[in-house]
């Protein structure tokens, strides 16, 4: 038996299995307002209107195809906007925060600038106060030294060519009176921030040998303190020597050799501002 014969038998079986529903169709068309037997074009038109007004688009294959086409077209039409939407999202997610961060940084910078101005002013004021206080302290110390009448200390001071005495506690204070004297002097040593590496001041060829030296009587001993840049020339070095005999101080004063000068300076943290050599 060939395939055609099978198909034929199958088709006969299939048709026998399918009920005759023409009567239902006939009844349905009649119910919709059209007569199957005597259908006129007007009645058909009414029936068409009913179908169309029902909103059921299943019957219209073309309409279904158009709907599918519309969906595809809508997707296709959205494509150009995908980039714009992505750009907008990127803008919101990345650019705006970056801009805001930059704005914040600028604001903070402005605030810091304002604060710095204030701090500078305050520091200047503090500097002046400190300088004034230093002057007072100097007088007090001179008085104290006079009262103490320590000849050894005086000898040491003389050997150092230094009349000044400093309060041990005030390394960071500026020495205003000396600074003023230095600035009024004939020698122009310049002033500014000490460069540890050159051990000098920018614009000046003078070498600062020692920044500060002082001798104070501590009980029955003499305490000699000198401050100078350390060997690495990156920070200050404070050396203290305690001797009972003032003559012993000489061996600790080799730095004064050939340049027995005490430079007037103020120390602020790691920075040293040099005003010039102390005047005799």
């Amino acid at each position: 038996m060939d395939d055609e014969r099978i198909e034929q038998l199958y088709m006969e079986s299939l048709k026998a299995d399918v009920p005759d529903y023409w009567s239902k169709i006939e009844a349905g068309i009649k119910a919709s307002g059209a007569s199957v037997d005597n259908a006129s074009s007007d009645e058909v038109t009414i029936a068409k209107a009913d179908v169309n007004s029902s909103g059921d688009n299943v019957i219209s294959f073309d309409a279904a195809k158009k709907d599918i086409g519309k969906k595809k077209a809508a997707k296709r039409n959205m494509r150009p906007y995908v980039g714009l939407i992505a750009a907008a999202v990127l803008m919101v997610v990345v650019v705006v925060p970056v801009f805001l961060a930059g704005f914040e940084d600028r604001r903070k910078s402005d605030e810091q600038s304002d604060n710095t101005g204030y701090s500078t002013t305050t520091a200047a004021m503090n500097m002046e106060d400190s300088i004034s206080a230093r002057g007072d302290n100097k007088e007090a110390m001179e008085t104290e030294a006079a009262v103490a009448e320590e000849p050894a200390a005086e000898a040491a001071m003389e050997s150092a060519g230094e009349e000044e005495m400093y309060d041990d506690a005030e390394y960071e204070a500026a020495e205003t009176t000396e600074a003023s004297a230095a600035l009024d002097g004939t020698r122009d040593y310049g002033q500014g921030e000490l460069d540890y590496k050159t051990n000098g001041i920018a614009g000046s060829t003078e070498k600062i040998v020692i920044l500060k030296a002082e001798v104070v009587l501590k009980g029955d001993k003499y305490l000699f303190t000198k401050i100078k840049p350390d060997d690495s020339k990156t920070k200050l070095k404070k050396e203290e020597y305690e001797v009972e005999n003032p003559e012993e101080l000489v061996k600790y004063m080799e730095d004064f050799d050939g340049a027995i000068e005490v430079w007037v300076c103020s120390i602020h943290g790691d920075k040293i501002y040099v005003y010039g050599p102390a005047e005799d």
Partner: peptide, 17 residues
């Protein structure tokens, strides 16, 4: 059967489209 009937009815009614 019902849907098949309805199909032919609608086919008839919307034949103009």
């Amino acid at each position: 059967e019902d849907v098949a009937s309805e199909f032919f009815i609608k086919l008839f009614n919307s034949a103009g489209t």
